[in-house]
């Protein structure tokens, strides 16, 4: 078992077009680092030096990780992480 990460259309150029990829780690931060090893460039689209990028939504199962622990949120095998670009503008 691993953690399934669902990738939005706009980031699938980092995953060879895959809608979902798998990874591992004890926290979201570790999971993203693990993904980066196989999908270079992806982590940079999700995280900046202050943490999760402001216009990216990340969900652990059915919860927005901003309401959990952000990048320190604990994850485990069998979880599903969903990435959605925020829909926003002026």
């Amino acid at each position: 078992m691993a953690i399934e990460v669902r990738i939005p259309t706009i980031l699938r150029n980092y995953t060879d077009g895959a809608k979902a990829v798998e990874g591992g780690g004890a926290t979201l931060d570790e999971l993203f680092a693990d993904l980066e090893a196989r999908h270079p460039g992806l982590r940079d689209r999700l995280v900046d030096d202050k943490g999760l990028r402001r216009f990216v939504n990340v969900y652990l199962n059915d919860e927005d990780v901003r309401f959990l622990g952000g990048l320190d949120t604990q994850v485990s095998d069998g979880d599903t992480v969903t990435v959605l670009p925020a829909v926003a503008g002026g």
Partner: peptide, 20 residues
């Protein structure tokens, strides 16, 4: 129809849980 989480005359953003 989505809620504008910003409730602003100059900005909009979908509520993250509603979007999910």
């Amino acid at each position: 129809k989505m809620a504008n989480a910003e409730r602003s005359p100059t900005f909009y953003r979908f509520d993250s849980m509603e979007q999910f």
